[in-house]
Amino acid sequence: MSKTTVSASKAPETAASHSDVIGHGNSPAAWTCVIIMLVGALVSSVAFVIANTPVFIAGAVLMVVGLIAGWGMRKAGYGVGGSKLKNAGH
């Protein structure tokens, strides 16, 4: 086994560098989708613990609403690279 180390300057390059946009979902559509779905998951989790089926179902429906809201916002131009955003980079 070799005891040589790889320095940062000699490390192999990957397909995408840090400056490339690889779509991490950093957009208003993605944030809205995730926040609504997290609230739905919280409601469903609490309802599961207290054994309340209607509230559990309401939380599950809220998670589906989050998906639909994120999809709709992406189609409206608020997704990554959307027409309503000024993507100036970091």
Score class of each variant (00 low, 15 high):
72 G>L: 11
30 A>Y: 04
15 A>V: 13
55 V>W: 05
78 Y>L: 15
49 V>M: 11
43 V>C: 12
75 K>E: 14
33 C>T: 00
69 A>W: 02
54 P>I: 06
23 G>C: 04
55 V>K: 00
62 L>A: 10
35 I>V: 14
56 F>L: 15
20 D>P: 08
4 T>A: 15
62 L>H: 08
32 T>L: 03
32 T>H: 02
5 T>P: 05
10 K>T: 02
61 V>H: 12
48 F>T: 01
22 I>E: 03
18 H>Y: 11
27 S>I: 14
70 G>E: 02
67 L>E: 06
54 P>V: 03
77 G>W: 06
42 L>R: 05
31 W>N: 07
6 V>A: 04
53 T>Y: 01
3 K>N: 12
29 A>H: 12
10 K>S: 13
50 I>C: 14
61 V>S: 10
56 F>C: 13
60 A>K: 01
66 G>C: 04
12 P>Q: 15
37 M>V: 07
34 V>A: 04
27 S>P: 01
49 V>C: 10
67 L>S: 08
88 A>G: 13
83 S>D: 06
59 G>L: 04
82 G>P: 00
8 A>W: 11
85 L>P: 06
64 V>G: 09
30 A>V: 07
89 G>R: 01
19 S>H: 03
16 A>L: 13
87 N>S: 08
68 I>R: 06
54 P>E: 05
23 G>H: 05
50 I>H: 11
88 A>I: 07
49 V>T: 14
66 G>D: 11
89 G>F: 00
42 L>H: 04
74 R>I: 11
66 G>R: 13
22 I>R: 13
57 I>P: 00
78 Y>A: 05
16 A>N: 14
13 E>H: 04
2 S>P: 00
22 I>K: 12
57 I>R: 06
36 I>H: 02
43 V>R: 05
18 H>V: 02
88 A>T: 09
88 A>F: 07
32 T>W: 03
56 F>V: 03
65 V>A: 15
61 V>Y: 15
14 T>A: 13
28 P>C: 11
40 G>M: 13
5 T>Y: 14
